[in-house]
């Protein structure tokens, strides 16, 4: 099975079952552990990655159904948008324990790619699938607004 992850081609063990969730292929087979396991049922968003730019919950997404290019948190700033998001995350000192943050950043990047200046309500909707038990939400919101501003200024 061939997967394209972060613009690099990976040959994954042909033995991988088609129904194995993409999350576990990335983590245990490819060795990219930046994408996190949180719930296994698409409830928490810690496993969010992009397939052709669309955010998906990799913990329930069978690897056999992946047809496009996969982007994970480890990407070499594949888009300027993601690097702006990461900069804003640092500027606002957003992460606490940090475990959910890969997923938060992937969701925020997808939001800003589709909508460069989201309102608070649009942020609420786009980020609704991502849980943060540390409650870093106020700074996630502030960082998304800051990233939106810096994308527009770029």
């Amino acid at each position: 099975m061939k997967l394209t992850v972060n613009d690099k081609d990976y040959d994954v063990d042909v033995d991988v079952e088609a129904e194995m969730p993409l999350l576990w292929v990335l983590r245990d087979e490819v060795g990219l552990t930046g994408t996190k396991f949180g719930c296994g049922i698409a409830q928490c968003g810690a496993c969010t990655v992009h397939v052709d730019g669309m955010p998906i919950r990799s913990c329930v997404y069978p690897v056999g159904q992946v047809k496009g290019k996969i982007t994970t948190i480890e990407t070499d700033s594949s888009s300027d948008i993601m690097s702006k998001v990461q900069e804003a995350w640092i500027e606002h000192q957003t992460p606490q324990c940090g475990y959910c943050q890969s997923g938060q950043i992937m969701s925020a990047t997808a939001l800003l790619s589709a909508n460069p200046s989201p309102t608070d309500e649009e942020i609420d909707r786009a980020m609704a699938g991502n849980i943060c038990r540390c409650g870093a939400y106020p700074r996630i919101r502030a960082a998304i607004h800051a990233a939106a501003k810096s994308i527009q200024e770029a």
Partner: peptide, 8 residues
């Protein structure tokens, strides 16, 4: 600890 928490 924050830089490593935004790039995986």
């Amino acid at each position: 600890d924050i830089p490593a928490k935004v790039d995986g």
